[in-house]
């Protein structure tokens, strides 16, 4: 049985409607991504008990916590904003949620957690003197100190600079692997999700659009929303390529190859060929070039190792790389 089970949960605010079911295994690192307003933070609030669902149930470790008080749920949360208690120093903040009574044990645990998040010796510091990254590390230590059954992280890195993000992201993953704690990690940054998680849930308009590993979602998206949310790509009406096909066909820029010469379709039976594409833009990306092409009025995106010299090129893609999506 799943460790965290969310069954048919519903929450309505005005025109927004959250409605989903979700499971997470014990010790899993599950990322929830989606555009802003997709309901990912609301989902965390429902699990934490900061919001009450209209219907449905939440079961954590076999216990129905849907109507439990926040305090008794055995969850801990790391917030995007600064939520350290300014009236206490770093150590007191970390000790705040500890269950044990004994003073030396509390102090030792706090010291160990500080070491774990890479802030050894910070105990006596005032929390208002911390940098953004340090504050998030202390939040993490404080959440872990309460020995939660599940750790909820609500965009914990969104307020930080990119280099700092990467740094703490790795620390979070390392802590997950060493403690084996179940983590639910909300972010709107797909790169962050790809690099950190075992499994990703993509949310859109209050519903789950897709779930899978980063590779699955990128390579085999189930719909156009997932396809575009997980990376760049091109979608054109399917009937342009295949007769009698509905919907769109989708491909990633790296799946297409350009040629500056005319291509003979009879030589490439495994491929679909788009000839007469006008080069609209050419951006240098470091590893190569990202070309924007115009094919019969439809924009195509294609990666190329070299910079085309001609204004008109042909494009070929393996038939099996073209996915029919809606």
């Amino acid at each position: 049985m799943a460790y965290l089970e969310i069954k048919n949960i519903e929450k309505k605010y005005g025109s927004f409607n959250l409605s989903l079911s979700l499971e997470a295994g014990e010790g899993e690192f599950l990322c929830i991504i989606g555009p802003s307003g997709s309901g990912k933070s609301t989902l965390l609030s429902l699990i934490a008990g900061l919001e009450e669902p209209d219907s449905g149930s939440i079961i954590l470790d076999g216990r129905d916590i849907t109507r439990e008080k926040i305090q008794d749920r055995g969850i801990a949360m790391v917030f995007q904003d600064f939520t350290l208690f300014p009236s206490m120093n770093v150590q007191k903040n970390i000790e705040f949620g500890m269950k044990m009574r004994e003073k030396t044990k509390r102090r030792n645990l706090a010291a160990n957690l500080l070491k774990l998040v890479g802030l050894e010796g910070y105990g006596k510091r005032s929390v208002t003197s911390l940098s953004g990254g340090e504050a998030q590390r202390v939040q993490l230590a404080r959440a872990l100190a309460s020995e939660p059954g599940i750790l909820l992280l609500d965009e914990p890195l969104s307020a930080l600079d990119p280099p700092m993000r990467k740094n703490i992201r790795n620390a979070i993953r390392a802590i997950h692997d060493s403690l084996g704690i179940t983590m639910l990690y909300v972010t709107h940054d797909r790169e962050e999700a790809f690099s950190i998680s075992d499994s990703i849930v993509i949310m859109n308009e209050g519903r789950i659009a897709a779930r899978g590993s980063a590779e699955e979602l990128y390579r085999h998206p189930s719909d156009l929303f997932t396809a575009f949310f997980t990376g760049e790509g091109t979608a054109i009406p399917a009937h342009l390529v295949f007769e009698n096909m509905e919907g769109s066909v989708f491909f990633r820029p790296e799946e297409a190859t350009i040629s500056e010469d005319e291509l003979d379709p009879s030589l490439y039976t495994m491929h679909v060929i788009f000839s007469g594409c006008e080069v609209v833009s050419c951006e240098f990306t470091g590893a190569g070039y990202m070309l924007g092409l115009n094919y019969k009025g439809y924009p195509l995106l294609c990666q190329s190792a070299t910079k085309p010299r001609r204004k008109t090129v042909s494009l070929m893609i393996l038939r099996e790389s073209l996915r029919n999506l809606i």
Binding site: A48, G49, L50, I70, Q71, D72, R73, I75, A76, M77, F79, D81, F82, T83, F85, P86, S87, M88, F96, G97, K99, Q139, R142, A143, S146, L152
Partner: peptide, 27 residues
């Protein structure tokens, strides 16, 4: 008092009373 501060305390298992005394009142 930032609205999230008491929420953070509740998620750490602190009661309303403890949250008020330790977290909110100092403000």
């Amino acid at each position: 008092i930032p609205a999230l501060l008491p929420d953070a305390a509740y998620t750490l298992g602190a009661s309303k009373r403890r949250t008020r005394r330790k977290v909110e009142m100092p403000f």
